[in-house]
Design a protein around this nucleic acid. Sequence first.
DNA 1: TCTCCTATTTACTCCGACATAATATAGCGA
DNA 2: TCGCTATATTATGTCGGAGTAAATAGGAGA
Lengths: 260, 260
Amino acid sequence: MTTIKAGKHIEEIEGDAKRTPRGTGRRLHGAIAHKLGTAILSGKYAPGDTLSGEVAFAEELEVSRSAYREAMQVLTAKGLVESRPKAGTKVLPRNRWNLLDPEVLAWAFAGEPDVEFVRSLFELRAIVEPAAAKLAAERRDKADIKAMKDALVAMRRHTLATEAGRSADRDFHNAILQATHNDALLVLSASIGAAVNWTTQFKQRSRALPRNPIPDHVKVFDAIVAGDGVMASDAMRVLVDLALDDTRSAMNTDQPSLPE
Amino acid sequence: MTTIKAGKHIEEIEGDAKRTPRGTGRRLHGAIAHKLGTAILSGKYAPGDTLSGEVAFAEELEVSRSAYREAMQVLTAKGLVESRPKAGTKVLPRNRWNLLDPEVLAWAFAGEPDVEFVRSLFELRAIVEPAAAKLAAERRDKADIKAMKDALVAMRRHTLATEAGRSADRDFHNAILQATHNDALLVLSASIGAAVNWTTQFKQRSRALPRNPIPDHVKVFDAIVAGDGVMASDAMRVLVDLALDDTRSAMNTDQPSLPE
DNA sequence: TCTCCTATTTACTCCGACATAATATAGCGA
DNA sequence: TCGCTATATTATGTCGGAGTAAATAGGAGA
């Protein structure tokens, strides 16, 4: 007998189905959750579907039941599935999903993102961000202004074509939400930031950005510094609308099914 | 020896620390997550704190490591903690918490809710709900109107003092968000609904509601039915502002540290 | 003094068994 | 024949322990 005791055959697993340990800090159950999460978000498992039993599915994934179960707890925590004895694990209806969870959002954008959903996100941005800019103009302090200024400088140095530039863009929007000194709004930052990031990448994917986004951002910044809430709100509304236009045209001309 | 084999001593546990199985559908790891979640949200474990090791903590809670770990996966999924080998499990900074997650929100309101946080939530409502009402007025269909009407009828029958009435209130706001036909907004429904619910209960706790909320709701409803976005938005703004006033005065006159 | 290596601590993964709860089925009574 | 109750089935839930992998701390060598 081969006397394989504990998790000895991990190597075959990695070489086979899940080359899990990408980078550092990636755990096995996290990888499973990612795999199943994207599968659900992409529609491979539709709401109402019943997943295979724990033992069968864990075996199919070539992981232990423990790891599989821990992954399911993650999906359950995010409202994607629900497990009950005897009944099995079922995919919950879409309105139970925590679509604003950063990780779920990432799963949603892992495959071909739903055009309708992107539109929803921009509509949310169009509602929240102008209002946030208004509050920021009324409440910003020195530190907030500095954070926004730094982000703007970084955006000018790198372009949106680089990751550093996109990061600076996110930092700018994040700084605005931070300046509202509102925890609930700040949480949306992670969600909105993710949406901004993914859609910006989509814009880049199809064509070079034809328009210089800096002036629009500067207008928002100036209004906030001046403490003019209405002007900040208006400027931000323009910014979001333009971003929506760009993304929309980019997605229309975007040929689907690009390989990863 | 007592020859206790598997989970045989659950009874002592239930009678002791965690009287877990309240109702049906409550799992052990869910109870652990609830317990630790409320502990973190209440500040018993502050950001940066390192929790005891798996073995020690699981033993302290009188549960198996599996159950404890599954609970931790839930907390990790909601951004409350982060675990790394050797370093242990640490509570993440507040800005990493998914405060809009319905479950986290429930944990936040399980103890004495932070006044500042409640204010943040109402500010979010004041931003989102009027805009949602406007969209709803432009896009509502027959089914949406029926859902709102039914909720209004139920609100009239029961008062906000009853759970049925609060449920109807939530249904009404939920129906409006549903009528926007926007998935991203709909997700906020769960969060906002929870906030509405908790704060409504707080209002009830300190005194009888002096004002009849029905007319305000009817105004919103009529505007949406008429398809008048601006009017719907205005009416909703009034409604939220009034609710904020009520809650604020209720929390001011509210003597803290009421026993559960 | 700095760098590299080793050692330890902690979480991570696996396994196999038993307990529990919800459903499906069969039996019983009206 | 129909409806209700008791039993059997089956999948999730919980348990305990063993062994693996990773990150930090401390020590050895340059």
